[in-house]
């Protein structure tokens, strides 16, 4: 009984270290990514998309550890596991649907004549960012 508990505690500590390490890695990436993309010669847009993809993958990785180990879902019987996980297929659908929609809402807004003098700058090219990153 006691040895089984020790084994479980080892798994917990290992998972905690993995979660902490991933978070620390994400943190480092958030600050160094722009410099790295520039030195490699990638376009800022491409680099940003790659960074976002990396963050999403790491987040799902962390989530699977929390749900699987901390919440013990992988120790439950399979049908309970699937009963909990399968409904999230609707969330996947909602993400695809609304991100797609959101990207098109702006295009449908009629342009009034009074907004001619607005610069249509993407967020990355705002002057304040130019200074911040020295780009």
């Amino acid at each position: 009984m006691a040895s089984a508990g020790a084994e479980q505690r080892k798994v917990i500590i290992r998972t905690a270290i993995i979660l902490g390490a991933i978070t620390a890695f994400e943190f480092v990436v958030a600050f160094t990514w722009r410099g790295v993309t520039e030195s490699v010669g990638l376009q800022i847009e491409t680099g940003r998309a790659m960074k976002d993809a990396l963050f999403i993958i790491l987040t799902l990785f962390k989530a699977s550890y929390i749900v699987g180990v901390f919440m013990h879902l992988k120790d439950e019987v399979r049908r309970l596991m699937w009963t909990i996980l399968v409904p999230f297929i609707f969330i996947v659908w909602l993400i695809i649907a609304l991100i797609w929609e959101g990207g098109n809402w702006g295009k449908q807004t009629p342009k009034s004549t009074s907004i001619e003098h607005i610069e249509h700058l993407p967020a990355q090219q705002m002057p304040i960012n130019v200074h911040r990153y020295g780009a």
Binding site: L94, I95, L98, G102, W105, I118, A123
Partner: peptide, 17 residues
Amino acid sequence: ITYGALRFRATSMGISW
């Protein structure tokens, strides 16, 4: 998801997030 949709909307309108 609402956050994502509104952010994509803003970008598509040229509004900086």
